[in-house]
Amino acid sequence: MAQADMLWRGLRGVALTLVVVFFLFPIFWIVLMSFETNETVLQVPPTLTPHLTLQNYVALLSGKLNTATGIINITFLHNLWNSVLLSTCSVLVALILGVPAAYAFARFRFRGGEDIAFTLLSFRFAPPLLVLLPLTLYFQDIGLSNTYVGLIWIYQLICLPLILWIVRGYFEDASPDIEYAYRVDGHSWWKAFTKIAIPLAGPGIAAAALLSFIFAWNNFVFALVLASADKQPVTVGALAFVTASGIQYGIIAAAIVLSILPTLALALYAQRWLVEGLSLGAVKG
């Protein structure tokens, strides 16, 4: 009995280790690479004890990269700022538009309601390239190409359906009776929405906001086509490290490490909050 138990535990440990290695090794590798020079990265066979250096980070933060062909100006910090600005504003706009819409779809049956909700979801089905060419032409006509407003608008294709459909599910799960009870107690529809419905769907809204932030942050192709250098987020900005003198693997690795930090921090922060909210939700009812 005890032996079988030990065996089981051992197997479980091995399985868990395999999973963790599978998912975390690339990250470990990238972090390691970010502290190496391009030469050591490309060394065959790789050394197990590489010489670690901070030069990639220094180059990124100072904006100057010394290569064999001369000094290249790096706009990485500006790209990072663009990412923060674009993702945050897109999620905020999507929340302002999506949460009331999700509530409407969850609570009211109206003509064409399902069709509208499904159309919004269908934005996620279509490959982005399908809409990019006409969008580029339209945006040039109405003067939105290469503007933050235009990009945030297009980012709604990513954020709005996610928020709408996730939050709608949370509103549908919450009994409308609590809102009715609040309204019978002398409060308006709007008060019931803001004081009862939104707090009850809080964990869902947080989860949807986090997910859509990550999707917006990781977006590449919209910004690549619709923004020029000064509006580009880090995902597109990293292309600058594919230089005439070769691909700057060390720099790219450092850029990746720096650009996953904000989402990682946000996820860790929200996770605490999410677990709290979801466990409260789990015992309600």
Binding site: S175, D177, I178, Y180, A181, V184, S188, I196, P199, K284
Partner: peptide, 20 residues
Amino acid sequence: LPPAQRRVAMAFEGYALYPP
């Protein structure tokens, strides 16, 4: 009238208590 102005009180089959 909206429910708030009807001056009725209600006990719900699904309880509908305020969770917090």
